[in-house]
Every structure is written in C-alpha cells, then in structure tokens.
Design a protein around this nucleic acid. Structure first.
Length: 547
RNA sequence: GGCGCGUUGGAGAAACGGUUAACUCACCAGCCUUUCACGCUGGCAUUCAUGGGUUCGAAUCCCAUACGCGUCACCA
C-alpha cells in the first residue's frame, strides 16, 4: 500500500506538514522550570465546581513557576454545545478570580498558540492526521455505528474485551482500491489510529500526583477524526497540548483509563509527553453513598450557585486549597497575613482518593476570611454583589457609605473579633436591621416580659438614655432598671431562686435588644445603638412600646 | 465482564517500620458572658476496610478478600 497516495486521497487540501506547525508554534521561551497548564472546558452551558478545582491547580502550578496558564475551549462535540456557554465559563472564571495568560475570550481570543477553540483547529489536526496516514499509523474506517455496536454485542457474548482492535478491526487492511471505491460511493468514514500496542505489555508513565504508574499498553484502534473531520478528545488533546506546549496536563482521574491511548500517540509522533496530573475528583454524599460530583445530578454544585449565594472567591480558593494540599491549613495558621499565592503548592501533596465536599468547612473558612477583611473592603465586595443580586440593598449601602462601613466594622476590633458574616447573601440578611427599610421584628419578646412590663422597662430606659454615656455607664442604667423592677442582676441567681424574681437581666436586656434589632441575638447593643444614632434608637423603642 | 484507581474518627487529613495516631471543621461538655457569637479548656479512632504473612516491632512492606469509585462511544 502506498500510504502517501492514500493520505493524498483522504486529505487532498492539506498542504502543511508537522514541521510547518513546529515552526508556527515553537517551544515557549520560558524559565527552566516554568510550567504551562490549561483548562479545557466544554461549552455545555454548565460550569461546575470541578472545573474550578482543576483551574486552581493549573493556575497555581503555572503562576508560581512563572509559567503560562491558558483557556482552551473543547468544543469538538457540536451536539452538546449550548449558545453563550463560553461567556458563562468566562464570567464564572472571572468572578472566582481565575486569570488566564492566553486563550479564548468572549468575542475572540489572545495569545500566540491559538486558535483556542478546537473547532477552529481543524486544519492543524488534519495536518497531523495526514502525516499519520502517510506513516501508516492511521487508516480510514467505513464501519457504520450499527456495525460497531453489533461488534460490541458479539464481544460481550464471547466475553472478550470490547473495542475495535486486532481481527475485529475489519477496515484495517482495506486495499487502496477498496478505500477509493468507498469514497467514490460517498461513504462517510472515520480515521482510526493503527495501534501497535499489545495488551500483554505495559508502559511506565509518571504522574505528578500518583507517582510512577505502570499501565497496560493501548491496543485499540480508536477514532482520531470523526466523520465530520473533527477530532475526538483523544486526538485533540495530544495535538493541542503538544503545539500549545503544555507541560502539565491536569485532568480528572476518569482519564486514567484512556491514558494508554494518549501515550501511544505521543510516542508514535515522537513528541515528549507532558507530565500528567490525574486528580481525584471531589465527591459528595448522595444519601448513604459517596459519589463523584456530577453536573447532571448536582446542579447545586454549579459555580453559578456559589456566585448567587455570594461566596467569596477567596474563601472558595482557600477551601479548595485545603482540600488539595492539606498542609495549606497549617500554612495559613502560620501565615495569616500572606496572600495565598505565597503558598508553595505541590501536586505531590495531593490526595489520590476523592474528597467529600464539605459546605460547613467552606462556611468556616468564609467567616475567617470576612473577619480578617477590613471594613472598607467588605463594603466594596458586598456592594458589588448587591448590585447584581439585590439592587435595593445596594442603594441603601450607597446612600450612606460611612454608615455602612461603620456597621461593617462593628465587632471587628479587639483581640476577639466577631465572625458574623459568611456569604454576601447571608450578610444582607444579617445587616438588615440596621436599615429601617429592612427592619422587622424577627424574634418574639422574652418570656418573662409581657406588654405592660415592656412599657415600664422602655419608658424608664428612654428616660435614662444618654448617648454620651460609655458602654459601662449605659449598662449600669440597664442594671438599675432591673433592680427597680426586681429582675435578678445575675442570671445564675435567678436560676437558683426563680421564685424571688420576675426574671433576670437577660430578659430585660433582650427586651431592649428585640426592640432595637428585632432579634434575640445580636452584637453589642450599645455599639449598635451608637451606630444607629440617638434618633433612630429612640424611635425604635417608642415603636416597640406601641406593640 | 475486562482494566484501572482508591479504603486512617461524622468530614478533610498527618504520619513515609519504632510517640499517648498531629492538625482543621463538625459534634458534645464546661468556662467566659446582658443575648448570640468570639475565645479558652476538655471530650470525641485502644485503632488505621477484613483476613493472612514478613519483622524484635506495621496504619506504614507483601499477598489475598471485601467494599467504593472510574472507564471500556464518531461525549468530553
């Protein structure tokens, strides 16, 4: 068989050679240990926490080594593509602070190793495909999908391994004339790889996370180019990551099974293999069973969910980092001030078993992040989120920035700052009582304080109220009210002898608390009052007396 | 069914042949306290999926078994 002739028959329009491509996409001019990584999401309209998980790994690997991190859109499956999906990916990555050095953008792309959308790289794939045909390493296959399915049935019946290989690869040995006739008859074909591998042999592959791997050689004549001339993932991955000069391929462990294919193509073409980093996937509990996060079953794990709930990008990063490198937590404790980019991230430290996604832990980290953040910065972040999800509250925040910052700073000072805020959505709810427009009584009055007693307490309170008091002076007046109305000054005393008192100071201060904040639980009452101002505080007490 | 990967407390995990099996979250108890938080103190695996080995000594090495996950497309 004259393979040159066959290649020309199959791809008459391809004029470039692999050597031309090598010249077009030369090795990158980077420092010795710089890593080049990427994420390759499919534009299915769904960006998942798992996408971010791999993005964080790739981003850290690249940027902590002064390398390059880029975005490639893997749109080889036209059937699954959703309009606007690229924008969805871009905006999710943008919100979570993932920055690309090159790759696809909303309308186009930037960088010297593109195109960064696989469908636009058809000529590149076909150039390599043509070369493989010339080398006798690839051949056209005219089997229909039904024929392949039937083959599979036979293999199942005979308890053989599935697939297109060995004696089952019927198109492997078609003559030039047969191929030419099929083509002339207008039969569609796929291009298959002619594997030289054997299931008995094994290859050694180094994995950045799992270490040395000994895997079975590939022996499948898998599809390189589909009948529309677009590559399968397997071929696109090899060609793209070679010419885009990717040094580290970070991807989920579901690719481990097909790794032998990729390795064989790299080796066949004489290209150096990237360092593969197969990540253990994030898991979640589904009833009793632990299973991988799935985009079909777990829509709540879409990045959009965290965005709309107002989780801070920094908190999500910190959480992901603790899952990825468990020593991150200790590092963070030792270096509370350093930006997370200072942390020496290592693939070797990554776990090989899937971690359960723990929302409670994310919340804890979020609290920590928000607690450490200066009020002005909290204001900016909250406002930005509100502009998108709660315009009304955004207007309130903007109406008086000083006031907003004052209430955000409340409880932040001192050696033991409060940790009241978790997410932006939760923060809006938490802060609502500071604004009359959002104020409402959420909790019931304390049990030992009925309506008439409340009036008594509040009228005394209003009489004594002096906004020039300090916290101690103010509280002394609350105590005085308690004494006058026979409420125990110490909750413990009341507990011991409930028959001696009408209640304890807890009841009195909580009555005031509910009047001012609408809640039984709140930060320091006097500080809140100071922030609200005398007028508003008095008004709320007066309103409460009328209830 | 074949092949691959995994298995330390409720969750994330450390430990790389020799300690009372770190640390963080959650949970529980106590303290602090005008509430809630915060903070502090203590509790929470006599045991590292199970069964065999190797060794003076094993969560750590070896072999089986079980369970879980992944994958076997002209999807990625």
């Amino acid at each position: 068989m004259d393979y040159n002739k066959l290649a020309q028959l199959l791809y008459p329009d391809i004029n470039k050679t692999p050597a031309d491509l090598e010249k077009m996409f030369p090795p990158r001019d980077l420092p010795a240990n710089a890593k080049v990584t990427r994420i390759g999401p499919s534009p299915t309209g769904f960006v998942h926490l798992g996408n971010l998980y791999n993005a964080v790994i790739g981003e850290r690997l690249a940027h902590q080594s002064n390398g390059v991190f880029f975005l490639r859109i893997e749109d080889t499956d036209a059937k699954r593509e959703v309009p606007g999906a690229v924008e969805t990916i871009l905006s999710a990555m943008h919100y979570f602070g993932v920055h690309f050095d090159e790759g696809a953008t909303a309308g186009g792309e930037f960088g010297a190793y593109g195109p960064y959308r696989q469908r636009q790289r058809k000529e590149i794939y076909q150039t390599i495909a043509k070369f493989l045909v010339q080398s006798g390493c690839a051949y056209p296959c005219f089997c229909t999908e039904d024929e392949v399915a039937a083959l599979r049935e036979r293999q199942i019946a005979q308890k053989l391994n599935f697939g297109y290989y060995g004696e089952f690869a019927t198109c492997r040995n078609l003559s030039y004339e047969q191929i030419e006739a099929n083509l002339a008859a207008g039969k569609p074909f796929v291009l298959r790889f002619r594997s030289k591998g054997c299931a008995e042999n094994s290859v050694k592959v180094y994995d950045g996370i799992r270490g040395e791997l000994e895997i079975q050689e590939n022996y499948q004549d898998f599809v390189l180019l589909k009948s529309d001339g677009i590559p399968t993932y397997h071929f696109a991955h090899v060609v793209d990551d070679h010419f885009m000069r990717t040094t580290h391929v970070v991807r989920g462990e579901e690719w481990l099974a097909t790794l032998p294919m990729h390795v064989e193509v790299f080796d066949t073409l004489g290209w150096t293999r990237p360092v593969y980093c197969h990540t253990a996937q994030l898991m979640k509990m589904d009833g009793e069973v632990k299973r991988k996060l799935s985009k079909r079953k777990d829509p709540e794990l879409a990045l959009a969910y965290y965005h709309s709930d107002g989780y801070l990008p920094q908190a999500v990063w910190e959480y992901l980092l603790t899952v990825l490198n468990s020593n991150y937590e200790q590092w963070r404790l030792d270096n509370p001030q350093l930006p997370l980019t200072e942390f020496p991230f290592r693939t070797e430290k990554m776990s090989t078993s899937g971690a359960l996604f723990d929302l409670l832990k994310l919340d804890d980290i979020s609290k920590e992040v928000l607690c450490a953040m200066p009020a002005a910065q909290v204001y900016d972040g909250l406002l930005a989120w509100c502009e998108e999800f709660d315009r009304e509250f955004a207007a309130l925040l903007k109406r008086d920035r000083d006031y907003a910052e004052k209430i955000l700073a409340l409880g932040k000072q001192g050696a033991r700052p409060r940790k009241d805020l978790i997410t932006w959505r939760q923060a809006v709810q938490f802060l609502s009582f500071y604004y009359d427009e959002r104020f409402k009584q959420e909790d019931a009055w304390p049990e030992h304080v009925d309506a008439s007693l409340r009036k008594e307490i509040f009228s005394r309170y209003l009489v004594g109220l002096d906004f020039t008091d300090d916290n101690a002076q103010w509280f002394a007046k609350v105590r005085a009210i308690c004494e006058a109305l026979n409420f125990a000054l110490q909750p413990k005393k009341y507990k011991k002898n409930p028959e001696l008192y009408r209640g304890s100071i807890v009841d009195v201060s909580n009555a005031i608390r509910v009047a001012i904040t609408g809640r039984l639980n709140s930060p320091d009452l006097w500080e809140i009052s100071q922030a609200l101002g005398e007028e508003r505080t008095r008004q709320r007490i007066r309103n409460a007396m009328e209830d």
